[in-house]
Design a binder for these strands. Structure first.
Length: 519
DNA sequence: GAGTTTACGCTTTTT
DNA sequence: GCGTAAACTC
């Protein structure tokens, strides 16, 4: 059984086998953090003989929890009892360990989504005949109100936002509903039973908020050890959590032992050194130098998208698999344009939200993602587009800007083999400046290859160009079928071939089944 | 009430 | 620098 831990490096092994009660593991990008969490659980259970119902593992997404469960299955038959997101664990505790009747709820309470919450809020406004302004931003306004801020603070005559907020809370209880935040807050407020947990592991700790930590502290009591894992340099959700440096807070509060995973196994030395320059820290790298990082500039977002398409087609011709390519951007609107242009020639998917990632990430096709949703993923080829001042960083307000740099860092470190960065000179999106981001200037010059693209087409010209190219390509492609005779290819992708035959008309073939049929 | 002016927000989003 | 919706004017 000792051999089980032999493939860990010395940093990983020290963290896995620690006997310290409070531990913070600072895991650098691509350093095998998930491996450490898996082996930490194995160590606790198989070596220290801790029962699985005394271990709790908290993850950032359901997907991450599934991956952990899957990897643990290789060595343990049963599941860890508490393994999942803060929300899924809170949900379980609320239903299993709390007498909800005391608090006006029952065990059958329903969890409401953002959309369902929206419906309830609109009903309250309608039925209560409340005076609410800026209705299209109603949920955002409630959110701000809850945090003690106001959206549209200078109204001439205030509306009923306060009444609406209070009614919303009352109605949720009356109808036995909880929204995502209620799961955490109510679990914290209602819990008075000791769950008997001895070891708690929290993944992606940098994106944990104070309420979630308070809940964990309540579950842990004085007995349980808390082992937090994450990378402060990848804190990109503090706009949501409101926590600036929760790692530091945790370390200051407890007698914490700090471990590090400083070795990057993921990216080429070129990419790793570029990333390290952004955060001003040394990252050790197991790999050799690779291709230089190409920096290109373009006239506008259309020409940039057109360039990316051309590069992707080149890669495809060289035999690169489309699923190994990702295009990353700061805002959703950028993705829409990219999807429009790239989608005409190559298979691509605009991935919005993690639920979709789960289903789609294995498929064949180029992935389009925001920098935020690229967190935790890796690709052999990565393009980051629109790296303009005013977009990355989107604002230069001091407290925001540090997070913007970390966001760029996250983007850069998604690339395993090849990284390209581009910016545009004549932008039309709000806030975009017509020059490159200061962050590009932070990358070491010796790792870069800078190029200026002078092409300046309108969107229609680009579309025409793509159409003509396609027609020309297909027009050239004449085929002869054993049965149907001569024809021309009118559509072709990886799986399907559509041919217009001179005598027979149009017919579609699956490539897999028609190999011997053409001469 | 229709017609015009002024104010504001604009980005990212796991559950 | 644009779209939305409130606030103002007659």
């Amino acid at each position: 059984m000792q051999g089980l831990f032999d493939k860990l490096n010395s940093f990983q092994r020290r963290a896995v086998e620690t006997n310290e009660k409070y531990v913070a593991l600072r895991a650098s990008v691509g350093s095998g953090k998930t491996t450490v969490i898996v082996y930490r659980v194995l160590y606790l259970h198989l070596i220290k003989k801790v029962p699985l119902n005394k271990i709790m593992v908290v993850t950032f997404t359901n997907k991450a929890a599934e991956e952990l469960k899957e990897r643990l299955k290789n060595n343990i038959d049963e599941d860890v009892k508490y393994i999942g997101t803060f929300h899924s664990i809170a949900n379980r505790i609320l239903r299993e360990n709390i007498d909800l009747n005391r608090f006006g709820y029952t065990k059958e309470f329903k969890i409401i989504s953002y959309e369902e919450a929206s419906e309830i809020i609109n009903d309250i406004v309608k039925e209560g005949r409340l005076n609410i302004k800026y209705k299209s931003k109603i949920q955002k306004r409630i959110e701000e109100f809850k945090n003690g801020n106001l959206l549209y603070a200078n109204m001439k005559k205030e509306d009923d936002i306060k009444i609406l907020y209070e009614e919303y809370r009352r109605v949720k209880k009356e109808k036995n509903l909880m929204d995502y935040e209620d799961l955490i807050v109510n679990c914290y407020d209602f819990l008075d039973e000791d769950l008997g947990i001895e070891y708690i592991i929290i993944d992606e700790f940098q994106d944990t908020d104070y309420m979630q930590l308070k809940l964990i502290e309540k579950i842990a009591g004085k007995r349980a050890g808390i082992f937090v894992v994450g990378d402060p340099n990848q804190t990109i959700y503090s706009f949501r959590t409101g926590t600036q440096n929760i790692f530091k807070d945790f370390i200051d509060k407890y007698n914490t032992t700090i471990f590090e995973l400083p070795i990057n196994y993921r990216s080429t030395r070129t990419i790793t050194e570029a990333a390290a320059a952004l955060i001003g820290e040394k990252i050790y790298c197991k790999r050799e130098y690779g291709e230089p990082i190409r920096i290109t500039s373009h006239y506008d977002a259309f020409n940039e998208a057109n360039y990316i398409l051309r590069r992707i087609k080149e890669l495809k011709e060289k035999g690169v698999c489309l699923k190994d390519i990702a295009v990353l951007f700061r805002r959703q609107v950028q993705g829409e344009l990219l999807y429009d242009v790239l989608g005409r020639e190559v298979e691509c998917e605009f991935i919005k939200g993690v639920e979709e990632q789960q289903d789609r990430i294995d498929r064949e096709s180029v992935k389009l993602l925001t920098l935020h949703s690229s967190k935790g993923l890796e690709f052999r080829y990565v393009f980051i587009v629109g790296v303009n001042e005013g977009n990355i960083p989107i604002s230069t307000k001091r407290e925001i800007e540090e997070e913007e740099l970390r966001l760029f860092f996250v983007g850069v470190t998604r690339a395993k083999e090849v990284l390209e960065i581009s910016y545009i000179k004549s932008p039309s999106y709000f806030g975009f400046k017509g020059y490159k981001s200061q962050y590009i200037s932070m990358l070491p010059k010796n790792l870069l290859l800078e190029q200026d693209s002078n092409s300046k087409y309108t969107l229609n010209e680009i579309y025409d160009m793509l159409r003509l190219e396609k027609e020309k390509k297909n027009a050239e492609k004449k085929v002869t079928h054993k049965k149907y005779g001569e024809g021309i290819v009118i559509y072709e992708d990886d799986n399907v071939l559509k041919v217009k035959f001179d005598s027979y008309g149009e017919k579609e073939f699956f490539k897999l089944f028609c190999q011997g049929e053409f001469i």
